[in-house]
Design a protein around this nucleic acid. Structure first.
Lengths: 154, 154
DNA sequence: CGATATTGCTCAGTATGCTGACTATCAGTA
DNA sequence: TACTGATAGTCAGCATACTGAGCAATATCG
């Protein structure tokens, strides 16, 4: 039988498990309480002010049903706002708050540190190669999950 | 600001997301209802009959609190059995059932197919290199998650 | 215009994963 | 043996993720 270590699926799960743990530890040590998912959502809201939830989901490849809860928590923490759109009454426009902007700014060193730590077993060149291969595999498999990546078309 | 595509953590999450979707699709098409986690647990129980839950958790790097529910579901599906240990009354010995063995045997082609599909954007050489780099990063970061990999010492 | 299809969002239900706490048991030691 | 600490397992609570269903609003087309 194939060993777990020959299964890309198992390795993916394990690497992701470590990545999340490192992220939470670094961010927690810096005095913040933000998950990787919440961070990605907040950063994307900041970069695309006024976007709606479906667009946000597409930009970071979340399921739309997951986004609802994530935003609930960002709003509850006072980091983002959810407003009814004037153009489409079904949609909610998302904005980052000043508090959210402050948090993002102060949290950045911890986030970057986390990215380094999760690659600490690899040389710089190997880290780059790992990211390249992951990007390539992800691009090829993009449509295989319920929550594919979707670019915005301006 | 760094793009998501330069964050190993984000790439890890995305690759894992695709891997799980592919696994569930392949296994579901084959007529089975088994998650990646349940599959790994069942295969490990088969390979190590009579092991306890903590040992199982260590072998596949699950948290011990997660294992409880996973085994609940394997037992409920009739694929595994949980027995009190005679040597240590705290521990539960795990066994695979005949039904579990049959399921494992019949499900294997779908599982292997899933592993191929999630690497379909990569050449054989690239797939090998991706797994090598993941293994290396995982080994270096093993102790960073609450559920590190633990080998059995016979 | 009106019927139909599509879209944005939410919700209920299920399955990982984690933190932290708790019980029962075992192991080591004074 | 009594005390102390460690260990196996479970549980409550929270945060992703998904399936599938549903509602309200918009878009499309005859």
């Amino acid at each position: 039988m194939k060993d777990n270590n020959d299964m890309p699926g198992h390795l993916a799960r394990r690497f992701q498990q470590i990545a999340v743990a490192v992220f939470l530890a670094e961010v927690g040590d810096a005095g913040f309480d933000l998950t990787p998912v919440q961070y990605a959502a907040l950063a994307t809201i900041k970069a695309n002010p006024g976007l709606d939830q479906v667009t946000l989901a597409g930009l970071i490849a979340y399921d739309r049903t997951t986004i609802t809860g994530v935003i609930d928590r960002l709003v509850q923490k006072g980091l983002a706002e959810r407003r009814a759109s004037s153009r489409d009454r079904r949609a909610r426009e998302l904005e980052i708050t000043d508090e959210g902007r402050r948090t993002l700014r102060k949290i950045t060193p911890a986030v970057e540190s986390a990215q380094r730590i999760m690659l600490r077993g690899l040389s710089a060149k190997e880290g780059e190669e790992l990211m390249r291969l992951l990007r390539k595999a992800i691009t090829a498999g993009n449509e295989l999950s319920r929550a594919p990546l979707r670019d915005v078309q301006a």
